[in-house]
Computed example of a mutant assay.
Amino acid sequence: MSDLEFWQYAAVALLFVWSGFVRSGLGFGGAVLTLPFLLMVYNAPLVFLPIIAMHLLFFSFLTIATAHVRARDGRAESTVNWPFLRYALALMIVPKLIGVAGVLTLPTNVVSGFIFVVVSVYAVSYLLEKPFKSHSRTVDTLFMVLGGYVSGTSLVAAPLVVPVAASRVRKHELRDTLFVLWFVLVAIKLAAFAWTGVDLQWRATLALLPFAGFGHLLGLRFHSYTLRADTGVFFRVLGGGLLVVSLAGLLRMVFGGA
């Protein structure tokens, strides 16, 4: 990134503020809602993916550690649903490793199109305050397995995982539970980057950390507001986030050839 112009540095910094805000405000979308814009500024996915991944590890760990201390001291109830995490990881870890290793290659457009269309239906149901719940262990299992595979090939598992989590986890637990799940999945992805010799962009990661941190603080305030608001507001925010994620993914497929 040393050959960028000033406006590109400024744009990247602002986009990492946005990434931090989305990540801590919703608990998902930090990659998929930021990466398309970053690539418009500088078309180098393997430059930005390690930065986004390491920021996620740092801020998710910080948030979960803070919540754990508050719960341990009796100042708040636990915000991580550990039974759901055991369920999710049991289903996702093998397809995650398959995706990372590239052992099984499915047509990207087929998988992505299926994900974004189905999740758009979920999102609209949330916006209408009538959240759809499959009531089917088979459908939930399919979503989680596909989410594991997709997270292995990219960093975009949220559209599949969030609807399942939202139907099984209380709203005050949703974000932090997802943070722990993303931490595990992203750590595997980063290990794969390091193993294959991808530059982890340590200098850029540290340089952009204050900008992502500012966005993170804004997102924490926004998240607190959604929890204080009624359930309808929470689901509308959740549905809006999912719909934007899905539309961004579809537009990228159509216009970016991804």
Score class of each variant (00 low, 15 high):
Phe6Ile: 15
Trp7Lys: 15
Trp7Asn: 11
Ala10Lys: 06
Ala11Asp: 06
Val12Gly: 03
Ala13Trp: 10
Val17Gly: 05
Phe21Ser: 05
Arg23Tyr: 04
Ser24Leu: 15
Leu26Asp: 09
Thr34Pro: 03
Tyr42Ile: 04
Tyr42Lys: 10
His55Val: 05
Phe59Cys: 10
Phe61Val: 12
Ala65Ser: 13
Asp73Phe: 13
Ser78Arg: 10
Ala90Glu: 08
Leu91Ile: 05
Ile93Pro: 05
Val94Phe: 12
Val94Gly: 09
Lys96Tyr: 14
Val100His: 05
Gly102Glu: 11
Thr105Gly: 09
Val110Phe: 03
Gly113Thr: 06
Phe116Ile: 08
Val119Tyr: 01
Val121Thr: 02
Val121Ile: 02
Tyr126Gly: 14
Lys133Ser: 14
Ser134Trp: 12
Phe143Lys: 11
Val145Ser: 12
Leu146Asp: 13
Gly152Gln: 07
Leu155Arg: 03
Val156Ala: 10
Pro159Ala: 11
Ser167His: 04
Arg168Ile: 05
Leu174Val: 13
Thr177Lys: 09
Leu181Asp: 04
Leu190Val: 13
Ala192Val: 03
Phe193Thr: 13
Trp202Val: 13
Trp202Glu: 09
Thr205His: 00
Leu206Pro: 00
Leu206Arg: 03
Ala207Gly: 01
Leu209Trp: 07
Leu209Arg: 05
Pro210Thr: 02
His216Met: 03
Leu218Tyr: 11
Thr231His: 12
Val233Asn: 02
Leu238Val: 01
Leu243Asn: 08
Leu243Ala: 09
Val244Ile: 01
Leu247Ile: 10
Met253Glu: 05
Gly257Arg: 04
